[in-house]
Amino acid sequence: MRLVRIWFDKTGEAKYISHLDLMRCFTRAIRRARIPLWYTEGFNPHPYMQFSLPLSLGMQSVCESVDIRIEGEMSDEDMLSALKEVMPMGIDVKKITEPKFDPKYIAYGDFYITFKDVPDKAKMLKILSDVFAADRLIVEKLGKKGRHKVMKEINLKEHIRHSYVKETETDVIVNLILPAGSTTNINPSLFSDKIIEIYGENMAVDILRNRLLLENMKEFK
C-alpha cells in the first residue's frame, strides 16, 4: 500500500462542481482508470481519499490535490495517463507525486481575483488603492458561535498577507494572499463582494486559487 498525491486543475465549467460532487467524480474516475485503490477492511469497505483543501463552489484553481491509497503495481506514469483519459472537461490531472507535507500544515492561499469587463477601470483602481492604503476593511462573515451561525464583522486588512493589482485591457486583477486551511479561512469572495459593493455596480468576477502555502510561505507540496 502506498500514498500518492494527484495534482489537478479545476477550471472552466468544472468550477461549478461542488466539493461533495468532486469527491464522487474522483471516485468514479479512479474506478474508470482501473487504479488499484486500497479499501478499508470490514463490512462496508471504502477507499481512502483526502483532498488537500476544499475549494468553494464557483472558484477555479490550478493547485488542487487529492491523496489516495493504492495497492498493487501501477506506476505513477501509468496512473497519470489512465486518469487523463477519463476525467471530465475542466478537471485536468497534471502530475502524481509522493506527498511531502501533510495538508494540515496549509496556512495560506494565493488567489487571483479578476474583475471582468470593468465599466470604469480608473474608478476601480482608485477604490483599490484607497482600500489598500486604509487600515481597516470591515466585512461581514458567517461564523459559528457555539452551535449557532451568526454574522461576524471582521477586518479583512488584518488578514491580507500580500496584495498586488494589475490591469489588462478590460479587466482589473488583484493578487491576494489570505489565510486558508484548517485554522483560519478567509474566502476571497468576501473581498471581491465588498469591492463590488463599494463600486456600486455588479460585474462578473473570476477567482482563481493559484498556490497553497505553508506557514513559512513555502509552497505546499
Binding site: E13, A14, Y16, I17, S18, G58, P88, M89
Partner: peptide, 10 residues
C-alpha cells in the same frame, strides 16, 4: 446548483 445548467458531464 449551477451544475444543473453547465453540461460538460462525462
Amino acid at each position: 446548483k449551477p451544475a444543473r445548467y453547465t453540461g460538460g458531464e462525462l
